[in-house]
């Protein structure tokens, strides 16, 4: 099986500060990878670089996604080819209803695949179905995107959008932050339902908590812009027990090539 995502020696900087310093990561279809790391380790930079945010400059390395040079693609092309980023801080779009927003997005993707626009009835049905997925109140569809949503609603709405857009690679950037335990469960269940053989996830998180609900296949520890240790779920548990300092002390002999 060829890798879905293959990151090699990735270096990236923002405003002349190098954040990623030689990151390697390989994700196969069907896998769930957790990337854990302390604040400032480069977790969000990785998410943003993969999604194609302009402010981040890649200075070295390569990212191959389903055989294509991901770094050569525009953000919207990446999205249309199945890369979805659940934002750490979902953006508010005043006056743009969630329905209108998603309809534009869904149809852009269908057009990309050479399909006709989805008719309104079909679209509404899909929206209701996917909203129930994450217990999202249907009335939120009529409201402006993320405007006046609670923290939990915003995160659930991100997973709802992911379900609507049916991506190949879902990147969740600290989706667990700011969620209470009930919301965390709902969000996790939503993600678990989306797990599939042809879909992969990269979960970016600070805490092990999320991983109790979404069981990853591989856990990576990111420090100073590189993956310093990889392992199974037990690595996350160990980290939770011993803390990032423990990894830092053992980083040198723990680097995974």
């Amino acid at each position: 099986m060829s890798a879905m995502l293959d990151i090699k020696n990735l270096h990236a900087e923002i405003e002349d500060n190098e954040i990623l310093r030689g990151l390697d990561l390989t994700v196969n279809p069907g896998e769930v990878h957790a990337i854990m790391g302390p604040n400032g380790s480069g977790k969000s930079t990785l998410a943003n670089v993969l999604a194609g945010r302009e402010e981040y400059e890649v200075t070295e390395g390569s990212v191959t996604y389903n055989g294509q040079d991901l770094l050569d693609m525009d953000p919207e092309e990446r999205a249309r080819d199945g890369v979805f980023l659940a934002f750490q801080y979902p953006v508010e779009l005043p006056g743009v209803s969630t329905m209108q927003f998603l309809r534009t997005a869904v149809n852009a993707m269908r057009e990309h695949r050479g399909e006709d626009e989805m008719n309104v009835a079909e679209f509404m049905k899909l929206m209701r179905e996917k909203a129930d997925f994450v217990n999202l109140d249907h009335s939120l569809m009529q409201r402006s995107v993320n405007e006046g949503f609670s923290g939990g609603e915003k995160k659930r709405a991100e997973i709802f959008q992911m379900a609507m857009l049916d991506p190949k690679l879902g990147i969740l950037d600290e989706t667990d932050s700011g969620l209470d335990i009930d919301a965390l469960k709902i969000v996790s269940e939503g993600v678990n339902k989306l797990r599939a053989d042809d879909r992969a996830f990269v979960l970016i998180t600070h805490y092990q908590r999320l991983l109790n609900y979404i069981r990853p296949d591989v856990v990576h520890i990111l420090m100073d812009g590189r993956i310093v240790k990889s392992g199974g779920f037990e690595l996350a548990e160990e980290l939770e027990a011993k803390g990032y300092e423990w990894i830092r002390e053992h980083a040198d002999d723990a680097v995974v090539a």
Partner: peptide, 28 residues
């Protein structure tokens, strides 16, 4: 915002359509 534009584009929406959505939303 770059943030708003990027958010839309990350959902597969073209730059032009993103701008349309945001401005029409503002004027709605």
């Amino acid at each position: 915002g770059e943030d708003q534009m990027f958010y839309c584009m990350q959902r597969g929406i073209s730059e032009q359509d993103a701008l349309n959505l945001i401005v029409n939303g503002f004027a709605k």
